[in-house]
């Protein structure tokens, strides 16, 4: 019997090892959503990010880092302000007689530097040099002066991992700024698309897409991109809207974490898929 197993092992050891490892991989893949997996990951990336930050700092040739950060913060605040004003313009046109809208929203921005990027086509992630010690928590939006970059996925004490918009696991509720049509946006591996948009919705190439207040993750208007085209126009009852993002993910180095997580009361009223266990 032992001899038989020994013979099989000798003949097929490469295949046996492959099968065992593939099965282990599939088990790991299946237990992905467990909180322990996230904790384990944050332990590893926290340690590794210490080295990444050293290289990232050495690469940072801008000597006027502080001035840059201040200016970029100002830019990001202005971007949000402009976007808010655009919103008000549209809302004002639609609701002429309505007054007393809430207009005292302030977004607390926290500057951060991207110290590592994983630009795998289906799963873009950034590592930031801010973490729990700076008050950064999973679920917080990350922006730069052009628009939304992604959402904080996991945090260690000093570092955080951000899932960028170009990550298959991130879906957001967005809307057309002009027509106010809402939809779910996701990354399909090649493009940012709003899926299952009814053909009756008024969406045109050139329209600006922003995050929707219906979103349980980012419920503030942050620019995302511009509609570049509609697909599946001839067939079916839904269109797919392709979006060109405002942010250049390869060049994004200095970013801001918006220290806002949707309030608990609202979260309790609706189903927040990000917090769902």
């Amino acid at each position: 019997m032992f001899r038989l197993f020994s013979d099989i092992w000798k003949k097929f050891k490469e295949y046996i090892v492959l099968i065992i490892l593939v099965v282990i991989s599939l088990i790991i893949l299946a237990s992905n959503k467990k909180p322990s997996a996230k904790k384990f990951s944050s332990l590893f990336f926290g340690t590794f990010s210490n080295f990444s930050s050293v290289i990232s700092d050495a690469l940072d040739i801008t000597k006027y880092k502080i001035a840059n950060t201040t200016l970029q913060k100002e830019n990001a605040e202005l971007m949000l302000e402009v976007n808010r004003l655009r919103q008000y313009g549209i809302e004002n046109a639609e609701l002429k007689d309505l007054i007393g809208l809430k207009d005292s929203v302030h977004y607390p921005l926290f500057p951060a530097t991207v110290i590592a990027k994983s630009l795998l086509k289906p799963q873009g992630t950034f590592t930031l040099n801010v973490g729990k010690d700076n008050g950064v928590k999973p679920g917080m939006p990350v922006i730069n002066e052009f628009g939304l970059i992604g959402i904080v996925y996991a945090s260690s004490d000093n570092f955080s991992i951000v899932r960028t918009l170009k990550n298959i696991d991130l879906s957001l509720t967005v809307k057309d700024e002009r027509s106010r049509a809402d939809g779910i946006m996701k990354w399909n591996g090649s493009n940012l698309v709003i899926i299952n948009v009814p053909k009756t919705y008024d969406v045109e190439p050139g329209d600006r897409i922003i995050t929707s207040e219906l979103s349980s993750i980012v419920a503030m208007p942050i620019p995302i991109g511009i509609v570049t085209g509609l697909t599946k126009v001839e067939t079916g009852i839904f269109n797919e809207v392709t979006i060109a993002p405002f942010v250049n993910f390869v060049r994004a180095d200095h970013v801001f974490v918006i220290k806002v997580i949707e309030n608990k009361e609202k979260n309790n009223l609706q189903l927040n898929f990000f917090n769902r266990k």
């Binding site: 090892v17 991989s25 599939l26 590893f44 994983s118 590592t127 899932r163 696991d169």
Partner: peptide, 25 residues
Amino acid sequence: GTILGFIYGFFFDVITGSLMGTSIL
């Protein structure tokens, strides 16, 4: 090579925050 691929994939997934298991496989 197969075992090394498994080890590389494991470290890649935990360090970059990719969906655990995809790079391993």
